[in-house]
Amino acid sequence: MVKYIGKRLIYMFLTMFLIATATFFLMQTLPGSPIASYNKLNESQRAIVEKKYGIDKPKPVQYAIYMKNLAKGDLGTSFVFKGKSVNDLLVNRFKPSFILGAQAMVFGTVVGILLGMLAALRQNTFWDYGSTFFAILGISIPSFVFASLLQYWIASEWHLLPVGLWNDGWKSSILPSIALAMGPLALSARFIRTEMIEVLNSDYITLAKAKGANGYEIAFKHALRNALIPLVTVLGPVAAGLITGSLVVEQIFAIPGIGEQFVSSIMTNDHATIMGTTLFFSAFLIVVIFIVDILYGIIDPRIRLSGGKS
């Protein structure tokens, strides 16, 4: 187990290093220069600005400085928000994104698990077809389409909830959370249905029936736990989907979160912020996948002793 974790950690650092390097050099080839937004400046003013952001030095030197700062956890200074460090920007915008993501995750997986169980226990009935169709919708309809529709009907037409922004407390978070939750909901519903059906056909469920267990005990005491364990493995893709979703959902609902900032930094050619956010997202996903793998080993008694997943 320790050896396995060690190996995984080395890979994680290697991956992060590659992403950082690739991001840095890709940024240099970007067609638009960040200085473009300073068009009105004259030669000497530009030189001052370039010096200030350290982009007057040769590329390898810039790279060395960047990596050195990165090692210290410093993501550099934003080109657009004057004088603000990327770290500060991320910290300020972390909270809304985190709240939305967490709410979507909890709501999506809980409802998804229930729907999946319902489908599996009432296989080939109206409930099964209904929840399966719902899951297909959730997987198929792009988050930005769903978010737009929610915003149009529930906020603009019926005025039930705020159209957007982050200034109405919890109410502001409901619609964007629901929009984000569709992905995890659909994924876990489908996953749990397949797993449950397989578990329900297994010998130990027949044995549980032979012991006299009733439908409730079979579903919750015997089947659910065994179906839930593999669900952990979809958390990685779910997290990736949440980030993708957050870019558009935060945009649509004008939420001051990291996703919204990432999109606007792309629009304004804010190199430092693009790089910083890219690294942040990558690190987040890599850590989630790592935790998922470790967690899987911990909660499945079959792997717990034999040590590590191969």
Binding site: D203, Y204, L207, A213, R225, N226, R302
Partner: peptide, 21 residues
């Protein structure tokens, strides 16, 4: 009746016990 008056032993002991209990 199941498990009390009539009970059953299955063919494959490798799969007939709940792995997570």
């Amino acid at each position: 009746i199941r498990g009390k008056d009539i009970s059953m032993i299955f063919q494959d002991p490798m799969t007939s016990l709940n792995p997570t209990m």
